[in-house]
């Protein structure tokens, strides 16, 4: 909790800041750039990115990946996970990293199956 305890490098040491305040502004600029890219892509919707990969649009994969990147920097630099001990870091991050993709995987797979069943017409959908 001492101010000197902050790790001041981001992007795996590519970018080093002189003070914690500078790092905060640097991360803000990075997050703003990512958000701007997301919004721009969402409005333009480039043709190339409308192809599908694993039953989802390429564009949507990009959005989700950029979101996780943003989440990483908010947690690591704003919430100071970077400065915590490995034990605390793991006990916070591991449950989420394991449980969330697992829950998403089983529920989305099930939903996809239900969609196929309704599409095949075994259920009266429009009556």
């Amino acid at each position: 909790m001492a101010a000197e305890g902050h790790k001041l490098a981001i992007f795996r040491g590519l970018l080093k800041f002189k003070s914690n305040q500078q790092k905060i502004w640097g991360v803000l600029i990075f997050l703003s750039i990512v958000t701007t890219v997301e919004v721009a892509l969402g409005i333009i919707k480039p043709e190339i990115l409308l192809g599908t990969f694993l039953r989802m649009k390429l564009l949507n994969w990009i959005f989700i990946i950029l979101t996780i990147v943003k989440a990483y920097y908010i947690a690591w630099d704003f919430m100071h996970i970077r400065d915590e001990t490995n034990g605390l870091k793991n006990s916070i991050v591991l449950p989420l990293v394991i449980l969330i993709p697992y829950l998403a995987f089983i529920l989305l797979l099930e939903a996809d199956y239900i969609f196929d069943v309704m599409e095949a017409g075994f259920v009266a959908w429009n009556f």
Partner: peptide
């Protein structure tokens, strides 16, 4: 952490409904 899992439940069930009515 626990609140994050609550939100996960909500967002994933949103995903469930969306994939179920994807078209």
């Amino acid at each position: 952490v626990s609140d994050a899992l609550t939100f996960t439940g909500f967002l994933v069930s949103y995903g469930f409904s969306r994939f179920k009515n994807i078209n």
